[in-house]
Amino acid sequence: MCLAIPSRVVEINAGMATIDVDGVKREASLLLLEDVKIGEYVIVHAGFAIHKIDEKDALESLQCLKKAAALVDQKEEDQ
């Protein structure tokens, strides 16, 4: 089953990351992902980090989505 929630990298040690998913700590291999840094968010599948979430992209797509749904005014989005 896919773990849908992104996990925060809290520690990196010899190609293994310690990740935090809603307070639960787990290990994830970094063999499938380059350039991961502490503090970044990754998607983890079966013990491997497979994608690094780009905060900027995430925020932009959320804003596009809200605009498309014609819901929130600009001021609220910017905060």
Binding site: I5, P6, R8, D20, D22, G23, Y41, I53, E55, A58, L59, L62, L65, K66, A68, A69, A70, L71
Partner: peptide, 22 residues
């Protein structure tokens, strides 16, 4: 600590708007 903005993807207002749109 949950990722920033994750809550917004669970936002029920936004969901309702999307359902209206659909």
């Amino acid at each position: 600590m949950p990722i920033k903005h994750l809550e917004e993807y669970r936002d029920s207002d936004l969901s309702r708007q999307l359902v209206e749109k659909i």
